[in-house]
């Protein structure tokens, strides 16, 4: 029997090739990139255990666990508020690690229920001078710089599909940077929707990157 090879395939593997899309007259108003090679673990605190979970999360990830819609970034990754009692821990994947729960089980034993979502979501980075204009076509959330500051997060819906959206530190040119986490099975379809929304501003599709 031949040896088996396990190639990971992103849900967006066949959806795009890096380069310009949409209007090309001027510099791209929107930059889009798929972020690959991340682990995503849903940490769901058990009854009455929120403070114990927050403490364990701080000890493990080195950042304060958000108690409201926020994304807190630290060296180890991002702790994202994803619902009452719930955190999503987003960290870089080492190699082709396939069991991210193993490293967390002891830490959260008895205080939280853990669920691996590393393959259940697809992560996008959306930036550029027109990123807000483009997102206004797909998101009902007010993303004004003052209302939705760096670190703000929203559990929301895009094209009637659940998504998590948060804002990270602005790019060097001052333009905003957003991260968008969508369900893997919807990723290909939502990618098309995002491209349609951004086409008039010109899109630079960047090569897939790590976290």
């Amino acid at each position: 029997m031949a040896e088996f090879v396990w190639h990971a395939v992103s849900p967006l593997q066949h959806s795009f090739t890096p380069g310009r899309m949409g209007e090309t007259a001027d510099a791209a108003g929107v930059r889009m990139a798929e972020i690959r090679n991340f682990n995503l673990v849903q940490i769901f605190a058990r009854r009455g255990q929120w403070s114990a979970v927050a403490k364990a999360a701080k000890a493990h990830f080195g950042v304060e666990a958000p108690t409201r819609p926020q994304a807190v970034s630290g060296k180890a990754g991002v702790l994202l508020w994803s619902g009452p009692d719930q955190l999503s821990a987003l960290t870089a994947r080492r190699g082709d690690e396939i069991r991210p729960l193993d490293a967390l089980r002891d830490r959260f034993a008895g205080i939280a229920s853990l669920s691996d979502q590393s393959d259940g979501r697809c992560l996008l980075r959306i930036s550029g001078a027109r990123a807000r204009d483009m997102l206004a076509k797909v998101s009902s959330v007010d993303l004004d710089a003052a209302v939705f500051p760096v670190g703000a997060a929203a559990a929301t819906a895009i094209d009637h599909t659940a998504a998590n959206l948060w804002r990270e530190a602005d790019a060097a040119d001052g333009s905003p940077v957003f991260k968008l986490l969508v369900f893997s099975s919807f990723a290909d379809s939502l990618w098309d929707t995002l491209v349609d929304a951004a086409a008039e501003y010109g899109i630079e599709v960047e090569s897939p990157a790590g976290l």
């Binding site: 605190a45 058990r46 009854r47 009455g48 255990q49 929120w50 009452p84 009692d85």
Partner: peptide, 16 residues
């Protein structure tokens, strides 16, 4: 308001 069991992790364990 949130339903009774929503955000139950914030409830003290002794309240169970």
């Amino acid at each position: 308001k949130a339903a009774a069991g929503t955000g139950a992790a914030a409830v003290k364990a002794s309240a169970r």
